[in-house]
Simulated assay, not measured.
Amino acid sequence: MFDNVIIGQYVPKESVIHKMDPRSKLIIVLLFIIFLFLTRHPFILGMAVILTFTAFSRSKIPFGYFIKGMRFIAIIIFFTFLLHLFMTREGTVLVEWPLLTVYSGGVMEGSLIALRLFLLILMASLLTLTTTPIDLTDGMERLMKPLKKVNVPTHELALMMSIALRFIPTLLGETAKIVKAQMARGANFSEGSLWKRLKALIPVLIPLFVQSFKRAEDLAIAMEARGYNGGEGRTKFRQLKWKPLDTGALSLFIAFAVLTVIFRFLE
């Protein structure tokens, strides 16, 4: 389950998406997420699908690699779809059973939410798959630079978010190792009542917390040994450069946002 998680991973490729400025990619993802959940219009949703899959195809990342990483998230999307399918009671009756009735509105609502979640995860994953943690940190820090005027530690916040993203696959890998070790000792995570399964997770969570704190301590010692003392007075070896490619890509998504607002008023 945890072997192919792609959240927080970086895949080095020579693509136009990899060459984009991290600031433009962060703004694009933010715009896309906000306005994707503001519309229900088929034209705008179709436009969102086209933009997402065009960006993914231009990244040169194999789609099969993404699908492997979607296994666990697909379960969440599927249960979200079922929740809306069975809880929404609008439209005509499609299926009627003694304990369950499925309405056309439930199918539409469930499909809409599932599509939104899939596109959101695809676009957010594309950000981390095509951007190194260092560039991601620099991009976040530059975008939050105006907050320095109100004494917000922008560098530290950007660094924390970047480290958190980077540690997701590391911690999931540690979880997989601990689960396999416990199964080799006779632990069973797939049989018995819900309470027994939860109890079986305790031998996994405790060493996972211990490993997490140990990794955090090792990282802090390594940063101190290299003279890290916060963002004040730090210089950048690699300078971010905004290119015409970033302007063009951002313009496309701004157009998407504007059309979303227009069609929302027309609904």
Rank of each mutant, 00 (worst) to 15 (best):
Leu94Glu: 05
Leu36Tyr: 01
Asp3Val: 08
Leu266Met: 15
Glu14Lys: 15
Met140Asp: 05
Met108Ala: 15
Gly106Thr: 01
Thr101Arg: 07
Ser24Gly: 11
Leu159Ser: 12
Val102Gln: 01
Ile168Val: 15
Leu219Asn: 09
Leu245Val: 13
Glu217Met: 13
Leu119Ile: 03
Val152Glu: 04
His155Asn: 11
Gly192Ile: 05
Ser162Ala: 13
Leu194His: 04
Phe213Met: 14
Leu240Phe: 03
Phe2Asp: 06
Ile27Phe: 11
Leu259Gly: 08
Ile262Thr: 00
Leu119Asp: 02
Glu191Lys: 15
Thr92Gly: 09
Leu112Arg: 13
Gly231Trp: 03
Glu141Trp: 02
Leu126Val: 04
Lys243Trp: 02
Thr170Ser: 10
Pro42Gln: 11
Met47His: 10
Leu83Ser: 12
Gln239Met: 09
Arg238Ile: 04
Ile73Trp: 11
Leu266Phe: 04
Ala114Thr: 02
Leu136Val: 09
Glu109Trp: 01
Ser190Met: 12
Leu115Gly: 05
Ile28Val: 15
Gly192Lys: 05
Ile168Asn: 09
Ala124Lys: 06
Gly227Thr: 04
Glu14Cys: 06
Ile163Gly: 03
Ser251Asp: 06
Gly46Thr: 03
Pro42Trp: 10
Glu90Leu: 07
Gly231Ser: 07
Phe253Ser: 07
Gln182Val: 03
Arg264Tyr: 14
Tyr65Pro: 08
Val5His: 06
Met161Arg: 03
Thr247Phe: 07
Phe53Asp: 09
Phe118Gln: 00
Ala184Leu: 10
Ile168Ser: 08
Ile134Asp: 15
Thr101Asn: 06
Asp138Ile: 00
Glu224Gln: 14
Ile113Val: 10
Tyr65Phe: 15
Ala48Arg: 02
Pro146Asn: 11
Ile202Lys: 02
Phe253Gln: 02
Met1Lys: 05
Asn229Trp: 00
Thr137Ile: 15
Ile76Met: 04
Met160Arg: 09
Leu83Thr: 07
Arg116Cys: 00
Pro22Glu: 06
Leu100Glu: 00
Thr101Lys: 06
Val261Phe: 13
Ile73Phe: 07
Leu143Ile: 10
Ala225Leu: 14
Ile33Gln: 11
Leu198Pro: 04
Lys199Thr: 00
Gly139Met: 06
Leu143His: 11
Phe256Leu: 05
Met160Asn: 12
Arg185Phe: 06
Leu147Tyr: 07
Ile28Gln: 08
Ile168Leu: 10
Ala255Trp: 00
Asp21Gly: 08
Gln9Asn: 09
Ile44Gly: 07
Lys243Pro: 01
Ser57Val: 02
Gln182Arg: 10
Thr170Ala: 14
Lys149Gly: 08
Gln211His: 14
Thr235Ser: 15
Ser190Ile: 02
Lys180Ala: 15
Ile202Asn: 02
Pro207Phe: 07
Lys214Leu: 15
Ala216Met: 09
